[in-house]
Design a protein around this nucleic acid. Structure first.
Lengths: 177, 177, 177, 177
DNA sequence: ACGCTCGGGACCCCCCGTTAGT
DNA sequence: ACTAACGGGGGGTCCCGAGCGT
């Protein structure tokens, strides 16, 4: 068994266990049991539990962070949402995680703001709103969807939801005022 | 010193420490130090850390849960938001917390749906959307605002935000279609 | 309520709880709950848990120590036996208890030896055995019955037991050799 | 250092400390200090303090219990007897210990009953007594000898004692009736 | 002034994150 | 790379003094 393979399996197992039990709730033992490893070898790959968690976030977190478009916010899967929430919670204690999450969020909002600004310049989006403001709305919805996904709230009708989002988007289109 | 007074002080201190450090991060010792108490007496008032947390949620949580109106989502205070997030995280492990959070959420959404339905019947709100769908949107925004508040994202311009929310609300008003 | 009454009730409750849960297993809280008191007032009557236990032994212990005759060893009641066992255990750590138990035991064996010697002189008991030896046998059986009573071993047939004891006693009667 | 070696050392140390201080009086720290270990590794070998105690009983207790013939009951060593007494006391609080002690006692009595029954069939022992009754007598004497050994009662003359036991045994031999 | 409510430490079991040795 | 061990707490509980209320 190669080392890289073990690393990948460890990362995957850690992602699952962290998502299931949370950062504090997941013990190194749990993760190693999930990966079929002993507790020791973890520290050959990652210096600490925090580092392992950060690695998990880097690997599995970025793509789950605000990448799902608004119309699918009602369909976010719980196991994806869990990592995001844990990241936020962990960010409150671990500065490294805080930096990571902060950079993701900032990056996401900047990309969003860039797209929005471009749309505004192209005349397809109301340019009386600042790009950051619109971006913040999208961020809030994205993060909010993580929480509703984590909790077991009953799903709403998807068609209805899509139409609602479309209506809202239309309302901030240029000329719709 | 009366017992009720100590209880209240303990609850308040616990709320602060839980909000600052999270459920797992906060130790009984931390809370007692904050309350100026010894670790022992806690268990004369609350059977366990989980019970204390639940009591904190019951006392300080319900009013912070989705009670801030939409236009002020950008101004949610971090210490209030933190408890909500911790509640969601704790809900994943503790069934009692899960029930509590679930009932809050359900209650909030039902109240919202009621208001929305009333507005729809009165003809002031687009009645082609189901009340639950509109309610879910508000819930997501509310919860999302908790996460943005917890993270230290820079605030957006408040006037801009208010105008955006107003525009969105207008878009789902009856006749604005 | 007079103080003496409270003392008596406390002693009785302590006897029950110590017998039920053992010295270490019984907490002051348990005893006070049994007595319908608060934990504090105990120390107005007894300086410590150990003192309370000694008082219980003095009050309720002496009469349970080796007072049941040999043929009824199989019928010793658990709650009576429990205090004896606890006393023996406590004697290993508390010198005061050790003295108490020692004096009980010594007194019991001396009384036994006296009776035995009298019987030997009267010619009804084999006088080739020393009285202490026969007394020790009875002591062992008495103490042993406390342990079998404390554990929940199934009872043996009482008639069979009585006949066995009678046979054994006959075997040390004078002339039966 | 192999695990089995540590296990054995731990067991031996636990046996000593439990015998010296009793089940409740002995702390995990005490045992580990005796074994020259840290407190942590105990739980890699035994799941709990109760399990460790049970293991001690299995290892050091079973051979001391009822295997010494009746003629040596007067010579039981205090440190061996202590474990048996502690087992009875601990059984009253910890259901796990209770189950083990109970099954242990039952097993011992059944083995005894088996031997007795065999002797009865062989015609060397009075078959008018039920095997359980004779076994119970032996059990009582065995347990009783633990208590007299634990307490510091003066020893009786050994020859006298042996002769007494022999006389009693003779009395239940077949044909001696 | 007595007697109870309340608070104070101390400690215990348990377990966890982490590192040497094989 | 894994087995085995290490301390450091964490929660929980207990036995026991001070200080208010009757």
């Amino acid at each position: 068994v190669t080392a890289e393979q073990t690393r990948a399996e460890l990362l995957s197992a850690a992602a699952r266990v962290f998502a299931r039990k949370g950062y504090d709730g997941a013990s190194i033992g749990d993760i190693c049991a999930e990966a079929g490893l002993s507790t020791g070898p973890v520290y050959a790959h990652y210096g600490s539990k925090a580092e392992l968690f950060v690695a998990v976030l880097r690997e599995h977190g970025h793509r789950q962070f605000l990448t799902i478009g608004g119309s699918a916010f009602d369909r976010r899967r719980p196991e994806q949402a869990a990592l995001v929430i844990e990241a936020v919670v962990a960010a409150k204690r671990d500065p490294e995680v805080a930096d990571l999450v902060s950079s993701w969020l900032r990056g996401g909002e900047e990309r969003l703001a860039g797209s929005i600004e471009a749309a505004q310049r192209a005349g397809t989006l109301d340019d009386t709103f600042r790009p950051e403001t619109l971006g913040r709305l999208a961020t809030m919805l994205g993060l909010g969807s993580c929480l509703t996904a984590a909790l077991d709230v009953p799903a709403v009708d998807h068609d209805d939801w899509s139409r609602l989002i479309a209506t809202l988007v239309d309302s901030v289109r240029a000329g719709d005022r």
